[in-house]
């Protein structure tokens, strides 16, 4: 039985992700690590309308009965937990960020908050689809060094100690990308307000 407090957090953040246009009806995923176990969305469940039975608990290191029900993306979530200190993962499809990932190898925010908190977001490419070991390893390697990364043309993976934290990085990324887009539309020269911002790409 999954603790109702844990369900409540999943439900709230799932709802918020959908309301914020960061996922499609059945897209995206959330998980947390509880000791040697993972709690993740059930295969095919809608993140914006999670019911208590939509959460699956399974082992971190190998398969058990939970695994057949778990999301196909379990593999990448597991790889992240096994290779990084993360205790929560938020995977979503922030639209503007996905659009930028098509042309850039890294996204360097220009707004204050994201500059502060993220500095830059690397973009990784993986031709194998969602749920393959190749993709899992690539993503896990990238989030070893960054709070949030983009998988080109697909979406973002953010990690944190709690789901709230991982969700926060995701919204900050999308906000940063929308601001870059808006600034491009305005198309006027920047007045730089951040000292040493040229070094962000080295972060």
């Amino acid at each position: 039985m999954i603790d109702p407090r844990i369900y409540e957090t999943f439900r709230e953040i799932g709802e918020d992700l959908y309301a914020a246009d960061m996922i499609s009806s059945h897209g995206g995923n959330l998980s947390i690590r509880l000791g040697d176990r993972v709690i993740i969305k059930r295969r095919g469940a809608m993140l914006g309308r999670l019911k208590p039975h939509d959460l699956i608990e399974t082992r971190l290191d190998k398969n058990d009965s939970g695994v057949v029900l778990a999301s196909t993306e379990l593999l990448v979530h597991r790889a992240i937990y096994l290779n990084t200190p993360a205790l929560a993962v938020c995977h979503c499809h922030p639209r503007t960020a996905v659009a930028f990932s098509l042309s850039r190898d890294e996204i360097v925010p220009i707004d204050n908050e994201a500059s502060y908190l993220l500095k830059k977001i690397p973009v990784v490419t993986e031709e194998f689809a969602s749920g393959t070991p190749q993709m899992a390893n690539k993503v896990a390697e990238a989030v070893k060094n960054y709070k949030i990364i983009m998988l080109r043309g697909h979406g973002s993976f953010a990690t944190g100690q709690t789901l709230d934290e991982a969700f926060m990085w995701s919204t900050i990324l999308e906000e940063a990308c929308q601001i870059i887009l808006a600034a491009k539309t305005i198309n006027e020269p920047f007045k730089e307000y951040r000292a040493m911002s040229e070094a962000y790409s080295k972060f």
């Binding site: 844990i6 509880l34 000791g35 205790l87 100690q161 709690t162 709230d164």
Partner: peptide, 15 residues
């Protein structure tokens, strides 16, 4: 960075 229930037992080990 975020409040967790201080009486909760399940999952505390990972934190």
């Amino acid at each position: 960075p975020k409040l967790i229930d201080r009486f909760q037992v399940q999952g505390k080990s990972s934190f």
